[in-house]
């Protein structure tokens, strides 16, 4: 393969990165639509506690992170369901609890700060073949689950009560989605790290929403933007000798900013051209 993917470690990083870049925005789309953009971040905090716990008891940090993140996501889902407006605070409690538990467990396990940093900021340059295979397998699971559930998840994002009246298994889909989020966070953890996982889930979606219209287009375009961010980010990191995880996210930020600015210059005021003049646009204008 041509530079910058001429070396094996770069190729492995590229494959793992592409899988994550494609999958994270698929799940992120529904996080954004359900106004839960920070959920990925919170689950990341919990995954960090899982990593620390795994290092302490000597099991694989990845599996420990996966189980803690999944349990956490399910618990958050329950809290959100039960406590309504208070749900916000409940989430904050869990997430800060997660990172605090992570710090305490990490201190207890006596693991060096280097291993902590590799989970906080990712270590995509050291992924091995077996890990790439695992990432690819998890990625496939994510794609399949999204393909099956996206209609239901979309209907729930629009109006959860309507979805319930329409006979959708709302509680089941919520559970599936919580687990899906946890799996995605843990898969992406190795690539961009716990602190930046949510960025890769949310930023491509935010960029896609500026231009793309339909649900299907947003899923596909955001996934594409995620992959572009990974390819360009890895290339730039190789070129300038930068930390790859952070560079990938910076590229995603740059894409979002560019698309947003282009969006502004194209239609400075988002007035609908259709419909009769003089209507009260209760929700008129698309922000900005």
């Amino acid at each position: 393969m041509p530079w910058p993917f001429d070396r094996e470690y770069m190729q492995l990083a590229l494959i793992a990165g592409l899988v994550v870049g494609a999958c994270a925005p698929l799940v992120g789309t529904f996080l954004v639509q359900r106004r839960m953009s920070l959920m990925g971040d919170g689950i990341g905090h919990l995954a960090f506690a899982g990593v620390a716990g795994g290092l302490l008891v000597g099991t694989s940090p990845t599996w420990a992170a996966l189980s803690v993140a999944t349990l956490g996501a399910l618990l958050v889902e329950q809290l959100r369901r039960r406590s309504g407006a208070q749900g916000d605070v409940a989430l904050a409690v869990m997430f800060y609890g997660g990172i605090a538990a992570g710090v305490v467990l990490m201190g207890r396990s006596g693991a060096g700060s280097a291993s902590v940093l590799s989970y906080l900021f990712g270590s995509i340059l050291t992924v091995e073949r077996s890990e790439v295979a695992l990432v690819a397998a998890l990625g496939l699971v994510i794609v399949v689950v999204v393909a099956v559930t996206h209609r239901g998840l979309f209907a729930m994002a629009v109006d959860e009560e309507w979805a319930r009246v329409a006979g959708l298994p709302v509680a089941m889909l919520d559970t599936v989605f919580a687990v899906l989020t946890a799996v995605t966070v843990v898969t992406a953890m190795r690539v961009v790290g716990v602190l930046l996982v949510a960025a890769l889930m949310v930023l491509p979606v935010a960029a896609a929403q500026v231009s793309a219209g339909s649900q299907r287009a947003i899923l596909l375009v955001s996934s594409g933007i995620g992959m572009i961010a990974v390819v360009v980010g890895l290339g730039v990191a190789r070129w300038l000798g930068l930390a790859p995880g952070g560079t990938i996210v910076l590229v995603a930020v740059a894409i979002f900013l560019a698309v947003t600015v282009i969006g502004w210059s194209r239609s400075p005021r988002h007035e609908p051209e259709h419909g009769n003049a003089g209507h009260a646009h209760l929700h008129g204008g698309h922000g900005h």
Binding site: R7, L125, R238, G241, L242
Partner: peptide
């Protein structure tokens, strides 16, 4: 770990490291 450090590590004739997870990457 940046790519130039990984390159240097992979291409060297000899690597001296501490071991036992002192620098895991």
């Amino acid at each position: 770990l940046t790519t130039d450090r990984v390159d240097a590590l992979l291409d060297a004739d000899l690597v001296l490291a501490v071991g036992k997870g002192f620098q895991p990457g």
